[in-house]
């Protein structure tokens, strides 16, 4: 089935973004740069994985569930990134 190939392609590329985000987490020099890697790469990675699974699922409730998962996860990601960045700034800790 053609749709299966779309699902495989999207989920694979999504996983590659998660991998790149993790590499950034390990290689980037300090808290702020690491947050850049996690928020942006994971947002795209999860978005692509959810999109791939939406195509695979194909039912309205399933598509809605996956959409909510993506939106709620990026909400949590951006808010927690802001809180960690602000905490790091005010704590003035060494990197």
């Amino acid at each position: 089935m053609l749709t299966d190939w779309w699902t495989i392609a999207l989920v694979t590329v999504g996983c590659a973004f998660f991998l790149a985000g993790t590499v950034g987490l390990l290689r980037f020099p300090d808290v702020h740069t690491r947050l850049h890697a996690l928020t942006k790469a994971d947002n795209v990675g999860l978005g692509l994985i959810c999109l791939g699974l939406m195509i695979h699922d194909g039912t309205l409730p399933g598509i809605l569930r996956l959409g909510f998962i993506w939106i709620l996860a990026i909400f949590a990601a951006t808010v927690s990134a802001f809180l960690i960045a602000r905490w790091h700034e005010s704590a003035g800790t060494e990197d």
Binding site: F17, G24, K40, A41, V44
Partner: peptide, 24 residues
Amino acid sequence: QSLYGGLDVAGRALHPRLPLLIEK
């Protein structure tokens, strides 16, 4: 922009010389 941002940061993370233009 999310797509572009994800590609950009992924490219920088995987780049051997880790090109970051850090500014605050």
